[in-house]
């Protein structure tokens, strides 16, 4: 068994206009099958990926918002969103999907996965990662 590494996925692109957001999500789900320590960061236009209330029927594309809500099932509990990016876009945490994970050790208590953090805090998180994948 190899040692557990800290993977950080940095998401900086808006969804739907380009394929980056969906590609990133697929890689995250694949990576999560390998029991690594996974952290997601959403910065710049990447914060738009986890905005709630999306309806893609009109553009005839698959709506992958619901897939983010499955991240808790994949044991992904650390999702960081840059505060400065939200502010620049007139968004608050209330505009984002309500992403939860269930703590098996506390009778499946639901806990928040999303944490809004400052640029400085994100710098520490990025510095701490063993492997960073950028999308």
């Amino acid at each position: 068994m190899s040692e557990i590494k800290k993977f950080l996925y940095v998401n900086r692109k808006a969804p739907y206009g380009t394929i980056y957001a969906w590609e990133s999500l697929e890689v995250v789900l694949i990576g999560a099958a390998f029991d690594q320590d996974v952290t997601l960061a959403f910065v710049d236009d990447g914060v738009y990926q986890i905005v709630k209330g999306t309806d893609t029927a009109g553009i005839e594309m698959k709506n992958f918002s619901p897939t983010y809500t499955a991240l808790g099932d994949y044991d992904i509990k650390k999702i960081y969103v840059e505060k400065e990016s939200l502010e620049k876009r007139g968004l608050t945490v209330d505009d984002l999907l309500d992403l939860k994970w269930e703590d098996e050790d506390e009778d499946w208590a639901e806990k928040d996965s999303i944490h809004v953090v400052s640029s400085a805090e994100l710098a520490d998180i990025m510095d701490d990662a063993d492997i960073t994948l950028s999308f």
Partner: peptide, 13 residues
């Protein structure tokens, strides 16, 4: 374009 606005969850904004 409304379909693009709706797809991105921005219709209320």
């Amino acid at each position: 374009l409304k379909p693009d606005v709706d797809a991105r969850g921005m219709s209320g904004k």
